[in-house]
Design a protein around this nucleic acid. Sequence first.
DNA 1: GCTTTGAGTTACTTATAGTAACCAACTTCA
DNA 2: TGAAGTTGGTTACTATAAGTAACTCAAAGC
Lengths: 140, 140
Amino acid sequence: MGVTITENQPVERRKKIAKILEEKANGLCPVHDFLIHFANKWSMLVVLNLGYAGSPRFNELKSRVSGISQRMLTVTLRSLEEDGLVTRQLYPEIPPRVEYQLTPLGKSLLDVMMGLGEWAAKHEAEIAKARKKFRSRHAD
Amino acid sequence: MGVTITENQPVERRKKIAKILEEKANGLCPVHDFLIHFANKWSMLVVLNLGYAGSPRFNELKSRVSGISQRMLTVTLRSLEEDGLVTRQLYPEIPPRVEYQLTPLGKSLLDVMMGLGEWAAKHEAEIAKARKKFRSRHAD
DNA sequence: GCTTTGAGTTACTTATAGTAACCAACTTCA
DNA sequence: TGAAGTTGGTTACTATAAGTAACTCAAAGC
């Protein structure tokens, strides 16, 4: 009843996260370092979409990830490839055919990302409500 | 053995995510809409740090979230407050005292974020290896 | 030859992140 | 008296990243 939600989190888990966040390998904690590359909407949406699309071709992926431009899809895919989350298979035909796929590492991240996607979908209305409230309070 | 990791994901779950990503309320899918606000390293790191810091004051949080500037912390906290993830408690003293705290909504997101943090820590070395490999292949 | 095709580039504009200096108003110390 | 320190910010500016639109390549089809 008066129990807060974080208390559902095992204390051990919270302690571990605290430790990770304080840890610094070559100047940055691993979470920070990863988020620098990955914490942007296109990377996340591309991983999420690759999760159920199999091994789509470039344009197929482009039409799935609604709103993304050709350039940003290229940039995002290169970055994911660099981090070892995605493979790029080029078939040297003309016009070219290129297929993208999650690596095992990418698939393991997908599991976590799906949680985030589900959270976003579940709490959509609550967030919208909060924004509305905030804006009416801060309107002048 | 030859089984890929995504196959560990129940098919039902993948289908649901696919549906969510295609869904469009006022032009955007809820995941996209949420990520526009939240998919940046500072928001994620602030939520993660608030997760174990209780209700820290502004400067306390600033020193925890390593590398964040005063301005970006302010901007990030306002955005989190707007989305209903964080509360801001101002005590009108001088010098001022302000305490930040995750809301229940913020705490529910924390659960998911901890998964992401743990993933990043676990796969740090693998990512570093992939980056090195990518760079040596693409060096000219 | 002119058009289409897929998977990108390139050049350019706009938005966001990052840096450094400044502020308010009260307390402490000299 | 008056200079310096305190906290939680702003403001003005620069650097980086995202977004937009036009262009490319090499072959196939008309």
